[in-house]
Design a protein around this nucleic acid. Structure first.
Lengths: 182, 182
DNA sequence: ATAGCCATGTAACCAGTTACATGATTGA
DNA sequence: TCAATCATGTAACTGGTTACATGGCTAT
């Protein structure tokens, strides 16, 4: 349900095409919830079927028509309902945890390279988040106030990546000790 | 792919029925990866089709036959391959983050009760993890050494819940300030 | 040339959830 | 008698990924 409602949130802010949504998704909500362009097109089709959005065709030269979607009052209502609904706490579901859980069954060297790969990626994500944080702080005070909720989710992302990094470093230490011992 | 391989990991340790697996899943890997019994039965069927496990029927009185699954050498090979493969870094995908991202669109009071609900559940999960940590420390030294990898994943879970809690508390403060202001 | 952005989608598949179904045993 | 545990599954659906497909425009 979430991608559908995330789309409604973006459309509530501004009407957009599937392509636009996919861009905006990646920058904002994409920090913690990824959606491919295919999925967005699928969900837009469904939202349209359900009457939550309407589609406006804008002809262009040399490109397919832009399909600009607008949220309807039904869509707004559905969004309000969803915002007021209870959502479940998901589990972490990171395959790396399963691999570490079962580390004694595999090769320490392959696990270690996998660990390094993850560390690198988490460090990269952290850097991206920190850059976004700097952008946020560069905004004038009124804009900052406007965007305080998205900023809070960014902070969640920052803390999340920091924690992965420190935990992965700890695991790496143990893996190295293990290999030294035999 | 992960549930399938998690099952192979459990079977590598000890042959088991779908029911057993579902129990063991909940206690161990279930900390960070949940699987329903239906899914486990589905995956067992598929693993069996693929030749990664074999099934031994054990008749019982007054109950359906116990189907005890054993990992095969093909299964072991598939598991090794998976352990050596690269897995993706998933995103957080918690719907609550979307709701907070869009907090300005909804009712502060409903968001707050949702926040409290999540806080409570995260605190509960943390307590469960801490209890498991105490159990681990109560083990004799050799058993501790044996279970050090699962323990590391437990530590990940503990840090994860702690972080959710402190972030949610921060968000709550802001929400309360917001309501006070207007 | 060729890579990358703009812009749209379909089809097949894998992963996971929800609802439904059956039926014995055991303990409060 | 009612709930919980043991023990198995099917069917329908939702959510998400991967692969494939098309085709013009723009900058290097």
């Amino acid at each position: 349900m979430s991608v559908k409602h995330a789309i409604l949130i973006l459309l509530e802010h501004e009407a957009a095409s599937g392509y636009d949504l996919s861009q905006r998704f990646n920058r904002g909500i994409g920090q913690f919830w990824q959606a491919s362009h295919q999925q967005i097109y699928q969900q837009l089709k469904r939202l349209s079927r359900e009457g939550a959005v309407t589609c406006e065709l804008i002809p262009q030269q040399g490109k397919p028509d832009r399909k600009v979607y607008h949220i309807t009052s039904d869509g707004r209502q559905a969004l309000q309902q969803w915002l007021a609904s209870e959502s479940k706490i998901p589990s972490i579901r990171d395959a790396l945890l399963i691999k570490i859980y079962a580390a004694s069954l595999g090769q320490p060297s392959t696990l270690q390279s996998e660990l390094e790969r993850h560390l690198k990626q988490h460090r990269c994500l952290l850097q991206q988040h920190l850059a976004q944080e700097r952008d946020y702080f560069a905004l004038p005070a009124d804009k900052q106030k406007q965007r305080r909720w998205p900023y809070l989710t960014l902070r969640r992302g920052i803390a999340y990546e920091r924690e992965w990094i420190s935990w992965l470093e700890e695991v790496r230490e143990l893996l190295i000790q293990d290999q030294a011992q035999g």
